[in-house]
Design a protein around this nucleic acid. Structure first.
Lengths: 172, 172
DNA sequence: AGGATATAGTTGATCCATCAACCAAAGGTC
DNA sequence: GACCTTTGGTTGATGGATCAACTATATCCT
């Protein structure tokens, strides 16, 4: 029954008849990759669920509000905001529309560019993030910072930056 | 104008009147955390877009098909599948319904448990993953394995496992 | 000035993820 | 064997993400 039971790496060449076997991951590479993926999915799932439960903000809401409260006047241009979060402009537009409905944020016309629009954080938005931030930071500390040594955390940053560089080089 | 311009860490105590300042991240911690988040979002975005463009499978489809082709007979129980991917059963149910519509997968009644259901990979599903796997593995190698030294990859696995352990301990 | 092109942003369709509510069969327990 | 809880799974509503198509203003070129 091994024919029915092979994993992708074994069934592939059988099914396609390719002679050049692809460059599969070694067991160590595979284990590392799967560990990373699992961690990453569980971590972001947990953090966003905690954030939402504690404060009613999604991770996306939180990122937008941090970016806005960081900016002078609590305002940014739509596309500037989108680029700083590395979102597509369409996603930003939809998301800001939803946040505006909840009074976290408000659109304003842009005097110096007739096409443009400002996004401005409202008092309600400031309250929301002020309430959310300490709990969220505490969760990040508990789940990520604390279990790692400072050296490991530095390694994580280094590894992350190297992969991000590669993503930039190897443009879509 | 500094009142309008402070970041979350400075505005929080002003707005809430708390006297105990929360345990904010140090600059090094913050930089590491932001590097990680950025990498993680861009990497999964890129990988899933490439996968979809190359093979018409989403990352979720891919994970389901790998799990099924790994199992004896190419079949698994619904909840078993859900647990192995750490998905909620409702997500699994919806997703399997969509995959079944595309003939990647098929439901079967379960003889030994009247409530249960099997999910079985179809020939079409096997073809799809056989076509997708080499390209996807190549992308993972290019974007993650290659830019890291073996020691860094091992560190990434170690760090990931440590965080996952913490997630398990610190149960929701 | 007039036309081409680039930039800033919106919209609608479609698919995905999450939550709460629900249903039905299995397994105790008295 | 009637009741209760647990287990396995579905459903519908809602909000979020992505893609392609579109509008309107600005800018560049001659």
């Amino acid at each position: 029954m091994t024919g029915e039971n092979g994993d992708v790496s074994t069934t592939f060449s059988i099914l396609t008849g390719m002679t050049e076997t692809p460059h599969w991951l070694t067991p160590a590479e595979q284990q590392a990759w799967r560990s990373f993926i699992r961690m990453q999915e569980r971590l972001t799932g947990r953090l966003s669920r905690e954030l939402l439960a504690d404060s009613g903000l999604s991770a996306a809401d939180y990122a937008v509000l941090v970016s806005l409260t960081d900016a002078p006047g609590g305002r940014r241009r739509m596309l500037d905001l989108a680029r700083s979060l590395e979102w597509e402009k369409s996603r930003m537009s939809h998301h800001i529309a939803r946040m505006a409905r909840r009074d976290l944020v408000r659109r304003e016309e842009c005097a110096e560019d007739g096409r443009g629009a400002w996004v401005v954080v409202t008092p309600g938005g400031r309250e929301a993030i002020a309430a959310a931030a300490p709990l969220h930071v505490e969760a990040v500390r508990r789940l990520v910072i604390d279990p790692l040594t400072p050296a490991e955390l530095a390694m994580l940053a280094q590894i992350s930056d190297r992969i991000t560089e590669r993503l930039d080089e190897d443009a879509p």
